[in-house]
Computed example of a mutant assay.
Amino acid sequence: MPAFSLEPEQTAWCAELRTLAAQRLRPLAEKGEPGHVNRALVAELGRLGLLRRVFASGALDLCLMRESLAYACTEAETALALQGLGAHPVHAHGTEAQRTRWLPAVTDGTAIAAFALSEPGAGSDAGALGLAAEREEDRRGSEGDDAAVAEADGHGRWRLTGDKCWISNAPEADFYTVFARTTPGAGARGVTAFLVPADRPGLTGSPLQMLSPHPIGALRFDAVPVTGDDVLGEVDRGFAVAMGTLNLFRPSVGAFAVGMARAALDATVAHTARRGAFGGTLSDLQAVSHQVAEMALRTEAARLLVYAAASAYDENAPDVPGRAAMAKLLATETAQFVVDTAVQLHGARALQRGHLLEHLYREVRAPRIYEGASEVQRSIIAKELYARQEATE
Rank of each mutant, 00 (worst) to 15 (best):
residue 212 S to C: 08
residue 133 A to G: 05
residue 289 S to F: 08
residue 359 H to Q: 13
residue 326 M to C: 14
residue 267 A to K: 09
residue 350 A to L: 07
residue 80 L to I: 00
residue 303 R to E: 12
residue 315 E to T: 06
residue 229 D to A: 13
residue 35 G to I: 01
residue 302 A to N: 09
residue 223 A to I: 04
residue 118 S to F: 08
residue 346 H to P: 10
residue 286 Q to S: 13
residue 372 G to E: 04
residue 176 Y to M: 07
residue 24 R to V: 05
residue 323 R to I: 00
residue 80 L to V: 00
residue 165 C to S: 15
residue 221 F to T: 04
residue 248 L to G: 00
residue 208 L to N: 12
residue 365 R to C: 08
residue 74 T to L: 05
residue 241 V to K: 03
residue 265 L to M: 01
residue 10 Q to D: 05
residue 239 F to A: 09
residue 33 E to R: 15
residue 40 A to H: 05
residue 212 S to N: 10
residue 343 V to G: 05
residue 8 P to C: 10
residue 129 L to A: 12
residue 235 V to P: 07
residue 320 V to I: 15
residue 93 H to Q: 03
residue 262 R to S: 06
residue 73 C to K: 00
residue 374 S to Y: 05
residue 80 L to G: 02
residue 355 H to P: 13
residue 118 S to G: 11
residue 201 P to E: 13
residue 76 A to W: 04
residue 4 F to D: 15
residue 154 G to N: 11
residue 76 A to I: 05
residue 119 E to P: 09
residue 356 L to P: 15
residue 162 G to Y: 07
residue 212 S to H: 11
residue 208 L to A: 11
residue 387 A to C: 11
residue 277 A to G: 06
residue 21 A to K: 00
residue 168 S to R: 11
residue 269 V to F: 04
residue 305 L to R: 14
residue 110 T to V: 01
residue 66 R to M: 14
residue 209 Q to K: 12
residue 229 D to H: 09
residue 130 G to A: 14
residue 237 R to T: 08
residue 107 T to S: 10
residue 16 E to P: 01
residue 375 E to G: 07
residue 111 A to P: 14
residue 118 S to V: 01
residue 26 R to V: 00
residue 241 V to S: 03
residue 259 G to C: 01
residue 196 V to T: 03
residue 88 H to M: 13
residue 272 T to C: 14
residue 21 A to S: 14
residue 316 N to D: 15
residue 83 Q to H: 10
residue 332 T to M: 08
residue 307 Y to I: 02
residue 170 A to P: 13
residue 207 P to M: 07
residue 99 R to Y: 03
residue 318 P to N: 02
residue 377 Q to I: 06
residue 194 F to S: 03
residue 5 S to C: 10
residue 359 H to E: 12
residue 228 G to C: 09
residue 357 L to D: 02
residue 108 D to G: 09
residue 331 A to Y: 02
residue 340 D to R: 11
residue 223 A to Y: 12
residue 297 L to K: 14
residue 333 E to Q: 15
residue 108 D to A: 05
residue 170 A to K: 04
residue 379 S to K: 09
residue 126 A to M: 14
residue 124 S to A: 10
residue 308 A to K: 08
